[in-house]
């Protein structure tokens, strides 16, 4: 009798686990997915540290609208400028957020926008320089209400 109870409890737990997995759709990208996305953008998933600043709130109450500023330390001259900045949200169903193809005509390498975050996660900003070097930075954002709809 005791054993029967045990078994049924286990199957109950397994059953709810499966259900939870189904309800969790859309699933967040796995580590491989965002790394693949980053590699597809800049050719490496481990950029050098420094030169890039990603300013975001530490805690985002509403994941639908999370402001961000990316600033890259660059003179933005014809000889030395930022070719592109990419933003990747590691925990979103589609990890890519936006790419900005820049030019010296901007004068400064900075952009501000707003993104959606599905859950608490790390956000990565990488910069491709005109000399081919790649720099990146990672910021963690806590999300109270996710922004991927339902």
């Amino acid at each position: 009798m005791n054993q029967i109870t045990l078994v049924s409890r286990r199957s109950f737990v397994l059953g709810t686990g499966g259900l939870a997995a189904l309800l969790a759709l859309p699933q967040a990208a796995s580590a491989n997915e965002w790394q693949a996305a980053l590699e597809g953008l800049v050719g490496t998933s481990s950029p050098a540290e420094g030169r890039v600043d990603l300013a975001m709130p530490e805690i985002a109450e509403n994941g639908n609208v999370v402001p961000f500023d990316v600033t890259v330390d660059s003179p933005m001259t014809d000889a030395d400028y930022v070719k592109a900045v990419h933003v990747v949200a590691t925990g979103n169903p589609t990890p890519g957020v936006a790419s900005y193809m820049m030019s010296p005509g901007m004068g400064e390498a900075t952009v501000s926008s707003r993104m959606r975050l599905g859950k608490t996660q790390e956000v990565i900003a990488v910069a491709e320089m005109s000399d081919g070097s790649v720099y990146g930075v990672t910021t963690t954002v806590k999300v109270t209400i996710g922004g991927c709809g339902g």
Binding site: N64, V65, V66, M76, A89, N92, T94, G96, V97, A98, S99, Y100, M101, M102, S103, P104, G105, M106, G107, E108, T110, V111, S112, S113, R114, M115, R116, L117, G147
Partner: peptide, 26 residues
């Protein structure tokens, strides 16, 4: 700017509704 492309941006679905973008121009 005067016909020359200065900034091009590709967006994914993670860009918020009613997209806002601020940037500098020289």
């Amino acid at each position: 700017v005067n016909g020359k492309e200065v900034l091009r941006s590709n967006w994914e679905s993670a860009v918020s509704a009613n997209p806002y973008l601020a940037f500098p121009l020289k």
